[in-house]
Amino acid sequence: MVNGGQSVTALLREWRAGDPQAAERLLPLVYEELRTLAASYMQRERAGHTLRPTDLIGEAYVRLAAGSQPTWDDRSHFFAIAARTMRQVLVDHARKHTAQKRGADDRPITFDEDAIAVDRPAELLALHDALDELAVLDERKARAVELHYFGGLTHEEVARALDVHVNTVSRELKLAEAWIHRRMSV
């Protein structure tokens, strides 16, 4: 249901308090954002394509923030939660489809089951595991990867979220990417 004047600060407080429903409210947006992300990741070779994966999340943030006085921390936290949720959705989806082929059809025939087929879920899960390992070694780099790759933030936006210089983000991402890629292909 619609929750009229809820402020970003209040929502973040609920999230911090671990209210699972608070994060769930972002889910429809997260799904849509992931589809945009997919489109931009799969069509990168098409020059001049300017899909902006973070638009929906960013829009949600602006709506939340309007009328309240969120801090810079709130903003970073919001994008971090969105990126984490996006990662979690993908991992759950990939796991479900490695564990079992679809079971008995319990959905109405009006729904199109062909739309649900997962390509290469193993690679995503390998990425996920490698990212977890990296977080133990070097938390900031892992967060940068999560924000950039799962959250769809640009290097500049990651830099603002992590409060470091954009050059630092670019440099650290290069190592983090190489390290994860190596883990994925081992």
Partner: peptide, 10 residues
């Protein structure tokens, strides 16, 4: 690619 392919199949 790893992320995009799974995301595309949501």
């Amino acid at each position: 690619t790893a992320i995009g392919e799974v995301a595309a199949s949501l």
